[in-house]
Design a protein around this nucleic acid. Structure first.
Lengths: 111, 111
DNA sequence: TTCATTCATCGTACAAATACGATAAAATAT
DNA sequence: ATATTTTATCGTATTTGTACGATGAATGAA
């Protein structure tokens, strides 16, 4: 993107954008749904369900984990993932907070 | 991305991901904040505030408009933009709905 | 008309994201 | 000890996103 200007915005804007970016791919939303439904959380189970290769699923899981939306622990040769509800809830609150802040200044639309 | 598999997911997953993607850049979140605060909505005003070139701002505005989050009308040589509150509200509802659906299945986390 | 203003679009450069095969690492099973 | 299972990581190909200068189109001002 030719010299990212990302850090010229406020921290709040960067944080919200980062949260949105993690959920900006259908595969990652699908993964969150699988993790919520199946308490098993095994990586291989996700690979079975999603129409993606194992390497690709691992990559998406890594991004979700880096963003803090999910947690992962090793169980022998397997990997167990599950949703980090505290983080998820905080992000949703921030997101809704931004929307509420926008609405507060809602005047007569000019167009 | 080597053959997008985006359309192999459900429509709901694609829609939510598309909404998140539009807000996945701090510049576009900043634009929404400007549009909410200033009812003027003039493109040039946004260019003044953001640390980006005019062409770049126009590009971000186009994406927000394509996604339906903002509306734009021509006013002489100027362009007036403002938030599409109905669309924005619907998206927020869908987004919150997804989160609620996830929480409904929240059992004992395994990790 | 002529000039200035305002904005969208084009072309382009570069960065980041997406996808997967191949391989490595770690644990279990035989 | 050897083989199998499971997952992460590497390397790579391709697509998409980001950013901006330059240009053009449309309007208003001189």
């Amino acid at each position: 993107m030719a010299i990212a200007k990302t850090n010229e915005f406020t921290q709040q804007e960067q944080d919200l954008a980062a949260f949105a970016k993690v959920l900006s791919h259908p595969a990652r939303i699908a993964i969150m749904k699988v993790l919520a439904k199946e308490n098993a959380c095994i990586c291989g189970r996700i690979v079975e369900i999603l129409p993606l290769a194992q390497a690709t699923v691992s990559q998406h899981l890594k991004e979700l984990k880096n963003a803090g939306l999910i947690k992962g622990t090793v169980e022998g040769p397997k990997s167990c993932y599950c949703i980090n509800w505290e983080a998820m809830e905080k992000f949703m609150q921030d997101f809704n907070g931004m929307f509420s802040a926008l609405q507060l200044q809602k005047g007569k639309s000019c167009c």
